[in-house]
Amino acid sequence: MASQQNIEQAEKTNWHHEDLAMKTAAQYFGEELLPLLEIRGEVEYIVPTETVKLETRQFYQDFNYAMKEGNWVHLEFESDEITREDLKRFREYEAAASRAYKVDIVTYVICSADVKELLCELKAGINTYRVEVIRLKGKDADRLFKAIEEKKAKGVALTKTDLVPLLLTPLMSGNLEIGERIIKSLKILHMAEAPITQLELEKMQAVLYTFADKFLDKNKLAKVKEVIRMTLLGEMLINDGIEQGIEKGREQALQVVIEICEELGLTFEHTVEKVETRFDKEPRSAREIVERYWK
């Protein structure tokens, strides 16, 4: 039983870490990547990606941005070819969010599928629904990596302008697989001495982690996570997990102490004294703790 609880707790911690990386990536997409993707307009703030309809179905979108021009930009990531079912889903997202928030929405589908033609229109009755498809397969990730390596070999310092395109390498063409491109980009960022802040570096790493989470299978994602652990983002997530683990362990220990006191037939007041002694708590804090767990 305890083993199962530990597994469930570990899964919840992983979800928290992945959610943190996703949110960080979303902010960076709006600030830096939309111009690179040639999406016009200026982001004002990030907006909700969950829309609850009357029948209590929930629609989970990838990223939404409120633009200063008054409309929303909705981003979706697809590693496979775009199907009619995908377009129906995107249309439903748009309709629900547009009605709920009273805004016009344009959906951009960032697709890494290696197919010649991508579906971007859905005809339904007299209506035609369209999305804007973004493909970077015309750009070569190998050439980008080579240019950076040549610059480093000459002793020329990398700039932020050199590093930002690395975030789009998972969407480009090249001899390396997507997972290998992500790992190589993470390593370049980790070793770079460009004039960027630690926060900017963490955001860049989070963007690559987001692509890995979207496009890679479980085994390939595990390899990316190994590299992530060596980065600033990885250190941040690990430290966050340690702090949560310490607090969780402390709560479990307190609960065990109180249960043992109950089994021994000790009174509420005696238990308060034992918690105060065992965990060096103020009497008021010890009383609050015992009240929390006392059956």
Rank of each mutant, 00 (worst) to 15 (best):
Q5Y: 06
N6Q: 13
I7L: 14
A10D: 00
K12H: 08
N14S: 13
H16K: 15
H17M: 15
D19S: 12
K23L: 14
G30I: 09
E32L: 09
L34G: 06
P35C: 06
L36M: 07
G41P: 02
I46W: 00
E50K: 10
T51N: 13
V52E: 12
E55A: 03
R57C: 04
R57L: 05
R57I: 01
R57K: 14
R57W: 07
Y60P: 01
Q61Y: 06
Q61L: 13
N64R: 14
K68M: 10
K68A: 12
E69Q: 09
G70D: 09
V73P: 01
H74T: 06
H74R: 14
H74D: 15
L75Q: 05
L75W: 04
D80I: 01
D80Y: 05
K88I: 11
R91T: 01
E92G: 00
E92M: 08
A96K: 15
A100Y: 08
V103G: 04
V103D: 07
V103A: 11
V103Q: 14
D104R: 07
T107W: 00
A113W: 04
A113T: 01
D114A: 05
D114E: 08
K116E: 15
L119S: 05
A124N: 00
G125V: 08
E132D: 08
L136C: 12
K137N: 13
G138M: 07
D140S: 12
D140Y: 05
D142I: 09
D142R: 11
L144T: 09
F145S: 04
K146A: 10
I148W: 05
E150G: 12
K151Y: 07
K151G: 01
K154E: 12
V156P: 00
A157Q: 12
L158R: 06
D162G: 11
L166C: 11
L166Y: 11
L167Q: 00
P170Y: 02
L171I: 08
S173K: 10
S173D: 13
S173G: 14
I178D: 00
I182N: 06
I183Q: 09
I183L: 10
K187H: 04
I188C: 03
H190R: 15
H190I: 02
A192K: 05
A194K: 05
A194W: 05
T197F: 12
T197Q: 03
Q198M: 02
L201F: 01
L201A: 02
E202C: 10
A206R: 09
A206M: 08
V207Q: 08
Y209Q: 14
Y209A: 15
F211S: 13
K214E: 09
K214N: 07
L216P: 00
L216F: 01
K218F: 11
K220T: 09
K223T: 09
I228P: 03
R229L: 06
L233R: 08
L233P: 03
L233W: 11
G234L: 02
E235S: 09
M236T: 10
I238Q: 08
N239L: 07
G241V: 03
I242G: 08
I242S: 02
E243S: 08
G245W: 06
G245P: 05
I246F: 15
E247C: 03
R250L: 15
R250Y: 11
L254M: 15
I258Y: 03
E259P: 01
E259G: 03
I260K: 12
E262L: 12
L266W: 07
E276F: 07
E282G: 14
S285N: 14
E288Y: 01
R292V: 04
R292Q: 11
W294I: 02
K295L: 14
K295D: 10
